[in-house]
Design a protein around this nucleic acid. Structure first.
Lengths: 403, 403
DNA sequence: GTTCCAAATGTAATCGATTACAGTTTTACG
DNA sequence: CGTAAAACTGTAATCGATTACATTTGGAAC
């Protein structure tokens, strides 16, 4: 440390102190103004306020122009070489002398150079992005898949564009068209619809696309990765029948989807084998929401012979159903058994914990990316469909049928 | 329809039929092979199999080259105009004659032309993308924010790059650097850490960045949007004290974050006013997970005087705590009152429903995008921080303290 | 039929990279 | 030391757009 006379330090401290006070005053004024805008005057009582955060320097700095964008040309001049050499140093260092490499790297460091990704992409014709179409972001099951997608994509140098479609066709169209405009190299569809607009359908022919969990209706050109929903439907039914149930209810999600049909077919096939009649009366619901579970139970309990066991086609529905059954004074599983689907995290912590079907969601997401990248690179696929095994988790929400 | 002699139709049908049969056979072989790979031989019983999906044409078509990429030059040749005119027709149609416009549009249609987004972006220097850093995708609270972000971004012509950081610094660094390489124009941080690596810190100075829910620790340059956590802490405490509680426990999430400090300060301030001592013993936990709630309850119940009311710093923790309290034979709220935070969907359907603090998550996401886009466009901000109001939802998990 | 001006269109530079090809230096070896 | 081959570096074309500037066209006014 360098020597400083005492007086100088004192001055410095005084000045600093002044600045701090000044900033604080400015901050307090701004803060009060903020509160005023948000709450009106009433809430200003000091004790209801948050611990005051540090004063801010404000956005002034951010008003300046984006001066930090250095390009390859500046670096090349700084290093005294051509742009080609700079590019090579960064992409194929083995083509460049140790000596030059050092010079260039020093210049890169000095200039704070980061290659413009847009320029690289336009030259190579690859965006290294994939777009994922999700019908519902808040469903933790979908998010688990996307976690897998994200992880796998990142490992392979791809980034993920999020397309929250809310099940709406026009939003799907918009996101899907990103692949047609080079904004993304490929597409993962978590819903069951064909995401391209009629206008783009011809172009869509050659687009790398994979669907996960669902199959795209009427489309046989795209690979898919899904659970063995038919077998899962059978397993659940066997499980309930082994407990002596014979009066069933089903609260379905999206009834137009492939997985709906598969699960239903699985259930029906076992009922058939066991000599239990299936009737359309047993089937209610139409979306994968908690409210569907509530309404479904209400409807099913109105039947002449209400069910003693209810299949819910996802855990959210089951959560709603459980809530409503309890509200109506019925006990689970003593009065009614209940099964979910997906094994979302909370399902294990409900009261009672839900019997459900575990899907390897994370793994499905990862596989989808693998397959998609193969499609993007025009590599031959070893398989165009993958049907993954499930696991039936028997927990507290199912039990023996009432005598 | 054109006339066709009967015999010809018959032949066509026969051929078609042959093709279908052939495809079906190929499909079945492939299907069996798939099953073999996935399950082994045992599970082949026909009745355990899914309803057979339609035969697929396989990936052969997708092996072809990406021939559909038409560029502006081809369109210009097709229309017999210059590339400039094509560009103008699409971006500034008012600069072009009706006549030319028609010609060009026809050519665009014919060629199936979609402008290359990468090229446009490199020219204009704007990627029209923003990257969102999320510590945890599966948390529905975060996803609600992202829903808002996504929606607002889409409306303004931006797309959202998903950065699942899992709270890891190196992943944050990687995603944050997307803004430095023109891959994204701005950054929304949902966690409380400064996402840039030390290396990039100098460049980060001028990057458009906003944080939501959390403030970035030690950083005063970036705007933030958050809940009035201090006031929320106070409100929850008042609520519990009004029920006569005086022995409290707190199960916290990330203890290093700003919101943690704010909430805790709010709780402490009320305890102080009411003459209740705060001790570090009351505070357990350290992450926003269900397991934290379980472990937290176990720990708190070991105390000499276990709490009669427990603050959980998010709903997941509360769900875990509720589960564990019940498992230990305690009733909620008769024996122990419990509060959550965030108001995730399921919290209302727990047994009992959770008393919690509602955050306007969707709206916060939307606001974040508004602010970020202002930063990106170098527009002056009217306010560099926004503190949004909360709502205390009193539900079944809180009640009078045991006498 | 000129003249003039505005509108429409074309030419060519540009964005920031990559890379084929050409030119230069270094190395290896007789 | 000379020569060929190998290794390195530079020049300039290229990716697919946008846009400043130059040129052409069209129509109105006289």
């Amino acid at each position: 440390m360098s020597f400083q006379p005492i007086t100088q330090i004192k001055t410095a401290i005084t000045v600093d102190f002044g600045v701090i006070i000044l900033r604080y005053v400015i901050f307090v004024i701004d803060y009060i103004y903020t509160c005023y805008c948000l709450y009106g005057v009433k809430l200003y009582k000091q004790k209801d306020r948050c611990a005051l955060p540090q004063p801010m320097e404000g956005p002034s700095k951010q008003q300046e122009s984006l001066a930090f964008m250095t390009n390859i040309k500046k670096v090349s001049e700084l290093a005294g070489v051509s742009t080609a050499t700079v590019s090579r140093t960064l992409k194929n260092p083995e083509l460049v002398t140790e000596n030059t490499r050092e010079k260039v790297m020093k210049a890169v460091q000095l200039a704070g150079y980061r290659p413009n990704w847009l320029a690289t992409s336009v030259k190579t014709g690859k965006s290294n992005s994939i777009v994922v179409l999700v019908p519902n972001l808040v469903n933790p099951f979908f998010m688990r898949i996307i976690e897998g997608i994200e992880q796998a994509a990142q490992e392979k140098g791809y980034s993920v564009l999020l397309g929250d479609t809310q099940g709406k066709a026009n939003r799907e169209n918009e996101y899907a068209s990103m692949v047609l405009t080079n904004r993304a190299d490929g597409l993962i569809q978590l819903d069951h619809s064909f995401p391209f607009s009629a206008n783009d359908a011809a172009l869509a022919e050659k687009v790398p696309m994979v669907s996960v969990c669902e199959r795209i209706e009427g489309e046989r050109r795209y690979p898919f990765i899904e659970l063995d929903n038919y077998a899962a439907g059978r397993a659940l039914t066997h499980h309930l029948i082994s407990y002596g149930h014979s009066r069933f209810g089903i609260i379905a999600g999206q009834r137009t989807s492939q997985i709906h049909h598969d699960r239903l077919a699985g259930i029906k096939s076992v009922l058939n084998e066991e000599g239990i009649d299936f009737s359309e009366d047993m089937l209610v619901g139409g979306s994968y929401r908690i409210e569907t579970g509530i309404e479904g139970v209400q409807e099913l309990l109105k039947r002449d012979t209400p069910p003693t066991a209810i299949f819910c086609f996802n855990d959210d529905i089951a959560i709603g159903a459980l809530y409503e059954l309890k509200r109506q004074g019925l006990r689970v599983p003593e009065d009614v058994s209940l099964t979910g689907f997906d094994n979302v995290k909370v399902s294990a912590y409900m009261d009672p914990p839900l019997t459900t079907v575990d899907q390897p969601a994370y793994e499905m997401g990862r596989r989808a990316v693998d397959v998609l990248i193969q499609l993007i690179n025009r590599q031959p696929l070893s398989r165009t469909r993958e049907i993954l095994p499930f696991q039936l988790l028997e927990r507290g929400s199912t039990g023996p049928a009432k005598a």
